[in-house]
Design a protein around this nucleic acid. Structure first.
Length: 279
DNA sequence: CATATGTCCTGAGAGC
DNA sequence: TGCTCTCAGGACATAT
């Protein structure tokens, strides 16, 4: 589930690793599928990581990026259940990678992932540009302007909710926040992109910036499964502010009259208020 | 080209 | 109670 607010919270939580140096790399022995990180690559990883200094942290859409003084980048992609941690992990059997650090900021940097859909990648600067350039990943959802988003999606016949999930159009929005954004601006999730007005695009982007900034303020959403945690293994708080997500049949938080409806779009749940979001 | 669907994965919760 | 089944949705591969 980690989307832009959760990944940005993880990144801020580990920002203190900047200036630290990697002294050891461990891939804990476990029977998990090696999707996160192949054990066979460990020798090469150690060669490229041990002795290197961390020069920066950033975010590429829903990925946390660790910048190294060699120019290499270590990329953590949490997908559904991945966590990037400084603190000890929720359990030891799903720990995928541990970097031991020396420096004032932190002693360790961990990647933990219960379901194993996530990944850790070590790429060169050139590979990073190829893989996460603007043709692969759209402008960040926090930075994109209404006119930019409109330009990228105005010809699309897809439903706006589905299009907001397209990471080549804009980076960072996932299934949870797409519903929240459309509820805040009062636009029906099934409205086709090519039927939206300039005013609609302005409303969508304003709502997107509002929802994402507020969710970051509350350090993201920890759903009922409790999986998502910040870098210190603490739950987020934005789940207490959800407008429609996972609230099917409950009264709308805005009009208090209609009940929230759940539909399925592109095999994903969408939640909306039929009174506040007319088609 | 644009859009739609199938796949991976684990554990929580439903239903019997 | 304990079993089986369904579902959750990130990104990407493949199909239409």
């Amino acid at each position: 589930m980690p989307e832009l607010p959760e990944v940005e919270t993880m990144r801020r939580g580990i920002a203190r690793v900047v200036g630290a140096r990697v002294v050891a790399v461990e891939r804990p022995a476990c029977k998990l599928r090696p999707i996160a990180l192949s054990p066979a690559r460990m020798p090469q990883w150690r060669k490229r990581l041990v002795g290197r200094a961390i020069t920066g942290t950033s975010r590429a859409g829903k990925r946390v990026v660790i910048e190294l003084d060699s120019g290499d980048r270590l990329i953590f992609e949490p997908r559904m259940t991945g966590l990037v941690l400084l603190a000890d992990p929720p359990d030891i059997e799903h720990l995928r990678l541990r970097l031991e650090l020396v420096g004032r900021g932190a002693r360790q940097l961990l990647f933990w992932d219960r379901r194993g859909l996530g990944s850790a990648r070590l790429v060169t600067g050139k590979e990073f540009a190829e893989r996460y350039g603007l043709d692969k990943l759209g402008p960040d959802a926090l930075d994109i302007s209404a006119e930019q988003l409109r330009e990228r999606l105005r010809a699309s016949r897809r439903a706006i909710k589905v299009a907001l999930l397209d990471q080549r159009a804009l980076a960072g929005v996932g299934n949870l926040y797409a519903s929240e954004i459309l509820h805040l601006c009062g636009i029906h999730p099934a409205r086709r992109c090519d039927r939206l007005t300039r005013g609609d695009w302005q409303a969508i982007v304003a709502a997107m910036h509002d929802v994402l900034a507020t969710a970051i303020h509350f350090e993201g959403s920890t759903l009922s499964d409790g999986t998502y945690r910040n870098a210190l293994n603490q739950a987020g708080g934005y789940q207490n502010h959800h407008r429609v997500y996972d609230r099917a049949d409950e009264p709308c938080t805005r009009c208090r009259k209609a009940r929230v409806v759940r539909i399925v779009q592109a095999q994903r749940s969408t939640f909306y208020c039929p009174a506040c979001q007319k088609k």
